[in-house]
Amino acid sequence: MLKPMLLGIFIFLNTLNIASAFDESLPILSGVGGEFTAVDADGNTIESTNFKGSVIILAFGYTNCADVCPFTLGYLKRLYAGLSSDEQKKTRIVFVTIDPKYDNPDHLKKFIGHYNKDFIGLSGSQEQIDYIVSLYHAEYNSLATLGVPTQNIRRVNPKLFADSQEAKDDKATLFSHTITLYLLDKQGNTRSLEYTGTPVEQFVGKIRALIHE
């Protein structure tokens, strides 16, 4: 009687152990990432440790980006839709702007919300953003040659501005930037570096593995 019971307890504990096991196929990428402070979409200071307990997919970009960022956010939208509603609750998609001067929290919220209301846009001071970029060994550079007032670029009908300030603000500053998607576990460790070429099903599998650790 005792023997089967002990065997049952052993099997049960072993199952628990498997369920909470560290997924060795996703080793911790030490030196990539870390704790940081930023500003959330409502203008509140937020610590990265606030995300502990959730699996994070972190991306860098900016809202004046025409090709890469909308494509990346479209990909993340599809990725997020591949998760069950319970898995979505345990996952956060975080988009960190590398253009905090233009992408203020409210602007970022409206931009990101176009793709999915659950996505989190993070802005902050230039120093805060540069620190996050350095933590993830990411890079960005402004493409100065394109930082010209757009009314100077040829157009069928020249754009008219209400006042000189509006014309001054009408800048098309572009950046080059890292396109890596960082997959973070519930403790905030970077576990995998992905990109928009990763098949969605494969990426979803990795997110699931981290949710169930």
Binding site: D67, V68, E139, R155, V156, L174
Partner: peptide, 26 residues
Amino acid sequence: IGIQSNSATIMLHKTEIKSGMARMIH
């Protein structure tokens, strides 16, 4: 040699990916 529209200013760009960085070339 050019693309025009009354809805926007338009340029032909190319995104180039090098070492995980995306940059745009006009």
